[in-house]
Nucleic acid binder design. Structure first.
Lengths: 121, 121
DNA sequence: CACAAGTATATAGTATACTACATACTTTGC
DNA sequence: GCAAAGTATGTAGTATACTATATACTTGTG
């Protein structure tokens, strides 16, 4: 079990941001019942996976609300199987859209670069 | 030459947002010198291209500041050839990073989906 | 055992990217 | 020729995602 500083060290995400993610319902830890002297929160290994998933998802333009949908499908026991699958399928469609947009942006930049290279300086 | 409403219709971007992009230096139009009765701003066809580029770039997680760098390399006469190429090369690297992150996110969701499908309901 | 470092909580502030008025003028359609 | 629709300008408000600060308590180290 890891404390918040450990999570921050492993993922490079600032402690303040991790706290913000916890308040937003993206991750959660629990206090150790045996220790009554403090209220330090402990996180499991899966929290690191979640944080890395959040990092990557944000980098490709997903909002925290969109990411939360996936994380909930991933970990929440309350949702039905079909509800989870539906969320994930929608997300896969969005990912394909982004893949195409990324290719289009890349192509545009490549064209732009070619044009500039053929300019006289 | 197009007016702002036309740009909005063709791209689906709200007029207010287009004005915001113009204030941010991402696009620019000019007033028609021959018409002195109004100060309507006219935009060339390349503005539509720029707006579509902005749309896609935003969808894959680029900020307006990052997008502006590319648009400046694309259209600004003031920058040197090598400065432009440098900006574009950096952007291509970022795009490759995003491509990999997108693949990783996709993979994670596929795994997540498989796990759920194999659950007992 | 002092004290530096780590943690918890709460609140406020910031950056980015819009979005919504309000006001005023212009153009278009019937 | 008048109302509806379009455009310009300015200011203020909102949503998202942090980021900083202050305060207080706990833990680890020389």
């Amino acid at each position: 079990m890891k404390l918040i500083g450990q999570l921050s060290k492993e993922t490079g995400i600032p402690i303040g941001t991790i706290r913000f993610y916890e308040k937003s319902g993206l991750i959660s830890g629990q206090t150790n019942e045996e220790i009554t002297t403090n209220n330090y929160v402990y996180y499991g290994e899966e929290t690191v996976d979640k944080l890395r998933f959040i990092q990557m998802s944000k980098a490709v333009g997903f909002t925290l609300a969109e990411i939360k949908e996936v994380v909930d499908a991933w970990y929440k026991k309350q949702l039905t199987k079909s509800a989870k699958i539906e969320v994930l399928n929608k997300k896969l469609v969005q990912i394909n859209d982004k893949m195409n947009e990324l290719k289009a942006v890349k192509k545009q930049i490549a064209i732009c670069k070619l044009n500039i290279e053929n300019e006289v300086d």
